[in-house]
Amino acid sequence: MPIALLKFPYDLLQDVFQQCNPYELYCLSKCSKRTQKSITLGGTRNNWKISVSSLKSILVHCGKDSYVFRHTTHPYQYFKTRREFESVPSSYMPIDIPVGGFIDVFLYFLDTFRINSVEWLGNTEENMDALLQIGKITVQRNIEIGYLFIYDLEDETDVMGFMALTNQMNITNGIRCWQTFPSNFQHKFTRYPKWIHLKNSFWFNAEQLLNCPCIGIELGDSSFSNRDLNVFLQKWKKAGEFPNLRSLKIESKNINDQIPILGMIPPIENVEHPRVSVSFNGGNRMFNPVRITKDDGTVAWLKVELGKKPRFQFIV
């Protein structure tokens, strides 16, 4: 027995929409312009978030659940929710994402469901243009981004352009960048999320490290020397410096056994009382570190390893 939903008063429509999940509301939004407008005005149950990592799919996060909208070339499959695999409960909804039309679909989701938060953004070889556009949209609309993942692409030009935009984007939780950059690449962060993980970080210099307010910092292929790390630790030891920092991990070929760090010549580890194991949030575990203390009494753990990939590890 059908019921005339649109005859419900507006507040009641909202109550009904709030009982619907993103798949149902997406289908409803496709019924007519009027239903789409009603959904936009009605809002959604939770503050939905959106994620993008390819031109073929869009993820909508609603509370703890995620809903996948994936392009299909078979119109008969549109809107019919399917399982990824028979044995896996997660599902996706096949939809039409036209070639060159990804941004329109992305905007449709933002506008129809009034989404103003991005859970994560990730790039692929094919979606760098779209990612750049999405980045600009998030800047224009002041949309918050949880995580940004930049994977290593063959053609780094687009990524270099995109890095410049990251300072305008409101990235709150983390940036993870696997891209290998040319030796003349330069970038200076002017705003930071809670953590950064840069796989090829030669361009991230001592000045940036000394002013970095992150909780977690991971820098691969960096250019830091013993002297830089000593300066960093001297600064850290002063009360009030690096109030957020909990974990720092640096790999650099310039770490050696020539210059002391905090008066100790690398390798630096606790050989007197081994068996100490320290980790940050269950990750970056290090064994037998040396205990060091800040002027205000805060304790931290340090370990410096040499070898093929010299590594500096520091956990507060």
């Binding site: 059908p2 019921i3 005339a4 939903l5 649109l6 289908c27 019924c31 809107f79």
Partner: peptide, 21 residues
């Protein structure tokens, strides 16, 4: 009311909830 359209296509929803085109 929401359960009525669970798993339905826009075309089916239009019928169930009497939504004009």
């Amino acid at each position: 009311v929401a359960m009525m359209v669970k798993g339905k296509s826009p075309e089916e929803i239009r019928e169930i909830w009497m939504i004009p085109t």
